[in-house]
Design a protein around this nucleic acid. Structure first.
Lengths: 263, 263
DNA sequence: ACCAATTTGTCCGTATGTATG
DNA sequence: TCATACATACGGACAAATTGG
């Protein structure tokens, strides 16, 4: 231990529940505790840390939210592998709170989409191509349900990411995924034949994957996203308007529509 | 006990502390509580929710970690705007846990870097260019300290993102930022003149921003990242090896070096 | 299907440190 | 300086749920 110099870095200034959380976190990230393992009972943690049970519980809550710890069916604490979607909801809320515009979303989606496609081209397996084709078939069947189309479109792009074999790219896109679904639902909903154009684009993308035709794939990625953008603009919306207000308006309209339908 | 079918999904089974967290969260995301506003004291929340103090505190911890709630200097609770870096540490831990390789990191960084640069070209303000130049000067001064160079390199790229004016792209890169710093520190540390090459690349990037020369900027972005990759490989490391083990090894070596130096 | 032990969820009361006026 | 309000932390308690015999 370093004896001199810093004196003691005011360890006591950090609340005990935070230190409990940090120490558990350390055990996990260092690999001494592995995902799936039991963390032990609260009583055991009380003994180990020498703090009150309430304090332990507060510390646990901190980690629970991040997904680093979760409860198994019997509510015992186990180490969890924070999974993408767990994190992404929080992050996409941050996006909304930060009031990004459609333009920002579109630019980023374009950049990530092109890169994803290029990588997917070299790495796509027959199995993934088949899943992409199944997704297209499902979309075809659901083309009159905008919400479902938005979901399936999201799934399609997630499959492409998976095909790219690059988890960093996958994670990079995650924050915006939820926003993308919502906007797509909006766009498909008020453009006639919106779903058809989307399906055609997806078909061409899969085709170019099969033919290993990079340029065709990039071309259709651009077309697909340009369509998306045009659809957004055709709804009379402003590219630079914060998306949260756009989506909020849409939700309100949907709600009032369903209310009046109920009466 | 419930006798028949599934009836209602056991609402009473959701712990009170979670419901407390959800209700507060709702107030915030719905906009009824705005970032910066005070949340009220614990005692007040106890009254409003009709639960015990401990329960309220556990609920608060859940939100605290996500950044939705902060404490001001006097430890009073206020609504916080979850900021990028708060989230990113969690996400980059997820990355490490998921054992991504350098190759994945490199591919994603390349795609995002090129896109960022293109946008920054059109939107960079004189003020940001000046900050970029100051960063280069600082890097020059610290070129013998790998850790500091890694930090400043990270800052440089964050400034570029800021210049791009695209917060989605910014967020997309966030997860990997911490990994990038660490790897850069590693690479700069064991390549002679590694820092010089890095500084030159940064200089050329700023120059092309000033001249609005997109192609030059992209060229140097590629060079910069190819250098980074070569540096990684020169250290005898495998592009496909999970990064967490690479970084763990490096940390161990640094620790044993400082231990033996202390004796 | 019942019972006993364990564990979590919740509550109560109280003490201490600290920031604010 | 002192008083107050508040967050932090502790100890003990009981009910409800879960587990294992």
């Amino acid at each position: 231990m370093s004896q001199q110099g810093e004196r003691f870095p005011r360890i006591s200034n950090i609340p005990a529940y935070q230190r409990v959380a940090e120490m558990i976190e350390q055990e996990i990230v260092s690999g001494r505790l592995r995902p799936g393992e039991a963390l032990g009972t609260e009583a055991e943690l009380v003994k180990q840390f020498g703090v009150n049970r309430s304090t332990v519980r507060e510390g646990i809550r901190l980690l629970e939210q991040g997904g680093l710890i979760r409860r198994d069916p019997s509510r015992r604490l186990i180490v969890g592998l924070p999974h993408y979607d767990k994190l992404s909801t929080r992050v996409s809320r941050a996006l909304i709170l930060h009031q990004v515009s459609f333009l920002e979303l579109w630019e980023a989606t374009m950049a990530l989409g092109l890169a994803t496609f290029e990588l997917a081209m070299n790495r796509a397996t027959p199995e993934l191509i088949e899943r992409l084709e199944r997704n297209i078939a499902e979309t075809e069947a659901a083309k009159h349900d905008p919400a479902r189309v938005g979901e399936l479109d999201g799934e399609f792009h997630i499959l492409l990411e998976e095909a790219s074999g690059n988890r960093v790219l996958q994670l990079a896109r995650e924050p915006s995924n939820m926003l993308i679904y919502s906007v797509t639902e909006l766009v498909v909903g008020d453009i006639s034949h919106g779903a058809e154009r989307l399906i055609q684009a997806h078909r061409m993308l899969v085709q170019s994957l099969k033919d290993k035709d990079v340029e065709l794939g990039k071309l259709w990625t651009r077309r697909h996203l340009n369509d998306w953008r045009k659809g957004f603009e055709l709804g009379g919306r402003d590219l630079n308007q914060p998306l949260d207000s756009v989506l909020l308006d849409a939700t309100r309209m949907r709600e009032s529509a369903s209310r009046s339908a109920a009466e």
